[in-house]
């Protein structure tokens, strides 16, 4: 399924990120995505939602995937697990060196849940209202051939670990008998009960209130240390990312525009879009008014030529509208921009 067409940035991607001083040294990657392209059929022909996206996650690493709604984050998450049969996915998705796009349906299914766990946004709808919590958590083990008693034991153990009080008894409860935060813990339990190497969490806290958000994030955080899995946190909320992620990848209109270590990116954003996102997030360490990004996000079906962000960009020049910027290394970050901000400029604020 690998395509040669498009950007040749594989070499850039496979490079293990240079660890900044003080950050933990990351071991070999568990997930390596390169030139991921996802398109969906429409009446007007296929529309590419994700067009050439790269991502590397090491074992025990927390990576945030950030972007506005419509940027292709959730489509990416589902494409990584090959969940939507209507989508055409190309590129390479290496999980421990195996390209998921070359696997048969059965081989892929054997990896879902067991090697990659997925956590969804809304705990109200992610749990089946007519089945018990227990049966749904156990299902994640049972479908991979774990016996009933063993599955029950491990499910109770996991729910217990995630702070569900009286877990053994609560296995018989139904989703409506749980609060939103507790439900999201159950969803997390479903995703990690089989101890996957990688957890993809698609906006896992958006539907929750702020206090519960922190609890759920810190649970995920502790799991990284406990079972040593890598995490991809998909979110639109840069405020959430700062305290959680090791590295950040910013997505705009189906392409990665900037990625790098979290501190680097917050201190000196290089891409005008990243800078704009940061300027629109309230921060305690800086004064000044919030500055939302002008204009509205590009739609996949009518993505502007060149750099997709150029119609909204204050720094855009004529080449931005015509030439697609290739990612290049600036400091510790990879930036896809013709006219990146320099460290001195400190972003448009």
């Amino acid at each position: 399924m690998s395509r040669t067409k498009g950007l040749d940035i594989v070499s850039l991607n496979t490079e293990v990120p240079v660890p900044a001083p003080g950050e933990r040294v990351t071991p070999r990657p568990v997930l390596e995505v390169s030139d991921l392209r996802v398109s969906y059929p429409t009446v007007a022909g296929p529309v590419e939602i994700v067009s050439g996206f790269d991502l590397t996650v090491a074992k025990g690493e927390r990576v945030a995937l950030v972007g506005e709604s419509g940027s292709g984050k959730s489509v990416t998450a589902r494409a990584l697990l090959r969940l939507d049969h209507r989508a055409t996915v190309s590129g390479r998705i290496l999980l421990d060196g195996t390209d998921l796009l070359t696997l048969s349906g059965a081989e892929m299914r054997a990896r879902r849940g067991r090697r990659i766990g997925l956590m969804l946004q809304d705990p109200m709808t992610t749990l089946n209202p007519v089945r018990t919590i227990g049966s749904q958590v156990m299902e994640a083990l049972r479908v991979h051939g774990v016996g009933r008693a063993e599955a029950r034991r491990r499910s109770v153990e996991t729910l217990d670990m995630l702070g569900i009080p009286d877990a053994a008894r609560r296995m018989r409860s139904y989703p409506h008998e749980f609060s939103g935060g507790m439900r999201q813990r159950v969803c997390l339990a479903m995703a990690i009960v089989a101890h996957p190497d990688l957890l993809i969490a698609d906006e896992p806290t958006t539907a929750l209130d702020v206090r519960v958000q922190e609890q759920v994030l810190s649970l995920i955080d502790s799991l990284v240390d406990e079972i040593g899995m890598g995490v991809v946190l998909i979110t639109h909320d840069l405020g959430l990312v700062a305290g959680f992620a090791d590295r950040v990848s910013v997505m705009y209109a189906g392409r990665g525009v900037e990625r790098g270590p979290v501190r680097e990116l917050y201190r000196t954003p290089r891409h005008p879009y990243t800078a704009g996102l940061l300027a629109s997030v309230p921060r305690v360490d800086r004064d000044g008014a919030l500055a939302p990004i002008a204009g509205s996000p590009a739609q996949p079906a009518s993505r502007p030529g060149g750099c997709a962000f150029h119609p909204r960009c204050a720094r855009a020049e004529s080449d931005c509208a015509t030439v697609l910027p290739e990612p290049r290394r600036i400091g510790a970050a990879d930036v896809a921009c013709h006219h990146p901000l320099t460290a001195a400029e400190e972003g448009p604020r």
Binding site: I49, S69, G70, Q121, H236
Partner: peptide
């Protein structure tokens, strides 16, 4: 600008 279910909107269109 918080809605995030990209997939849904993709299919809705």
């Amino acid at each position: 600008m918080t809605g995030t279910t990209t997939l849904a909107s993709v299919h809705a269109a």
